[in-house]
């Protein structure tokens, strides 16, 4: 076999071997767990610091502006921000720009309130605390005291209560959502008279305190499409609402200019951005452990090393084989 044939073989390797290699390097780190460190960037720290300043009197929107196709990247971002908000007792409105985003919002809430999740929050449904509302107890601190004094105890492993209609409300999806954002700058209730479960939101304490986007402190859009820009166009530019992006890796470079222009407070780019937020949550004592994004970063690093090796080998074969002198490369595919 001549040397040229070896280089040619390298350049024409069956791509299924590459898929197999990627598969192996993506599974092994899950089983071994390298625990590679992750440093945080100012883009993600910008969101974290902004969120950290918010308290019980404040509210944020989390836009589940993605479909299951980008769930692996966007979901950890939404979950991390939601846990941060719940920790600070900041109220959370959840919306969806795309139809399937509504299911994503339900999944995120289920995950954060699932007893199997490390450091979960115990959810109290809207109808379960009706007596307290009728008694005028809607302040978070007073509500928690009254709720626990009636014999309700936090389950083992839970880190706090979240009351539907007080700490969060799931508004869901509406078509032409950019117009819905515009409408919410005037009144949230006119756009969403009822929540996901059909409860009138006008009676909810969260809405009584935050009637429109003007009363909201931040909108975090976790997005798998250009939907995120609608929040800038219709909320940031109209009423000055601070916006934060959680976008997929593919989109991240497109939206860096919005950081520099000051139109967004920060950006989480892909799984890496979500992992950084998880690290910040843990380092600041907001969560006890990191979550799925951080776990996935070992795999990310291993896969990147593998891809870099392939690129280097491909280039060596290309130049060593003298293919750069040819105008046409022979190949099976």
């Amino acid at each position: 076999m001549s040397a040229v044939n070896i280089w040619e073989k390298m350049l024409n390797v069956d791509r299924r071997w590459i898929f197999l290699g990627i598969g192996i390097v993506s599974i092994v780190p899950f089983l071994i767990g390298f625990g590679m460190p992750i440093t945080t960037t100012i883009e993600v720290e910008g969101i974290f610091n902004f969120m950290n300043e918010l308290g019980p009197d404040d509210a944020i929107f989390i836009g589940f502006d993605f479909a299951p196709g980008t769930q692996a990247e966007n979901m950890p971002m939404a979950v991390a921000v939601m846990r941060h908000a719940f920790h600070n007792h900041t109220s959370v409105f959840m919306t969806a720009y795309v139809p399937l985003g509504k299911g994503m919002a339900v999944s995120a809430l289920d995950y954060v309130t699932n007893p199997k999740t490390e450091g979960f929050y115990e959810r109290v449904l809207y109808e379960d605390w009706v007596d307290y509302r009728e008694a005028g107890i809607t302040n978070k601190e007073e509500l928690t005291v009254a709720w626990e004094s009636d014999g309700n105890a936090l389950p083992e492993g839970a880190v706090g209560w979240v009351f539907e209609g007080r700490d969060y409300v799931l508004l869901g999806y509406l078509p032409l959502f950019h117009l819905v954002i515009l409408g919410m700058t005037g009144s949230i209730e006119t756009q969403f008279p009822v929540d996901y479960h059909g409860n009138p939101i006008g009676d909810m304490p969260i809405l009584m305190e935050h009637k429109s986007l003007r009363d909201v402190d931040l909108a975090v859009t976790t997005s798998g499409s250009s939907a995120c820009v609608a929040w800038i166009t219709y909320a940031r530019e109209k009423i000055g609402l601070p916006i934060a992006f959680g976008v997929t890796g593919v989109m991240a470079t497109d939206y860096f200019p919005y950081i520099q222009s000051g139109q967004i407070v920060g950006q989480m780019g892909g799984l890496r951005g979500a992992a950084e937020y998880e690290v910040l949550l843990k380092e600041n004592g907001i969560t006890r452990t990191t979550d799925k994004a951080f776990t996935g970063m070992d795999v990310q690093s291993a896969a990147h090393i593998f891809i870099i090796l392939l690129i280097v080998m491909g280039n060596i074969a290309f130049f060593a084989g003298g293919f750069h002198k040819q105008t046409k490369l022979k190949g099976r595919r």
């Binding site: 993506s26 599974i27 089983l31 593919v250 991240a252 470079t253 892909g270 890496r272 990310q300 891809i307």
Partner: peptide, 30 residues
């Protein structure tokens, strides 16, 4: 180049999500 790098990261992230589902939710290995 930066976009390509982020794109590779994004595609691998989607694979990671599926592997977490298969090894965790389905097989309970992790």
């Amino acid at each position: 180049g930066a976009t390509f790098g982020f794109t590779v990261m994004g595609r691998i992230s989607l694979l990671i999500g599926r592997i977490q589902y298969l090894l965790g939710d389905w097989l309970h290995i992790i």
